[in-house]
């Protein structure tokens, strides 16, 4: 990681901000910091200067595992042919309510 003397920018952290209580945290961007405490303080200064958040999560970027573009087609296509998972797949007889 970036801890050599000539590169003293710290680790890269991803920042997730919850805008209001009760809703999910959403990715806001990233910050550089040497530890979690510093990452939280920077994230507050960089991403919530206008009360955009009530809670912040930070995680070192290298800890995140993500799908890749090359795999994404085969990874997600099992869901493609399962329209019956949606309520609109079904016909509701006329006059029947609350379905």
């Amino acid at each position: 990681m970036n801890t050599k003397d000539e590169n003293d920018q710290g680790l890269l952290w991803e920042v997730f901000v919850q805008a209001k209580p009760g809703i999910p945290h959403k990715h806001a961007g990233s910050v550089h910091a040497h530890d979690a405490e510093m990452a939280l303080a920077s994230a507050r200064d960089v991403y919530t200067r206008r009360r955009e958040g009530t809670s912040i999560w930070v995680i070192p970027s290298h800890m995140i595992t993500a799908t890749t573009e090359a795999d994404s087609e085969s990874f997600f296509d099992p869901a493609d042919d399962k329209a019956y998972r949606h309520p609109t797949f079904y016909t509701v007889p006329e006059g029947v309510k609350y379905l």
């Binding site: 970036n2 000539e6 003293d8 920018q9």
Partner: peptide, 22 residues
């Protein structure tokens, strides 16, 4: 302070392309 923040968002955006901030 906002300008500093803007600089930081943008350095991060550039870093996603594989160049590091230093």
């Amino acid at each position: 302070q906002d300008e500093a923040g803007h600089g930081l968002y943008l350095y991060s955006a550039a870093e996603t392309l594989g160049i590091d901030r230093q």
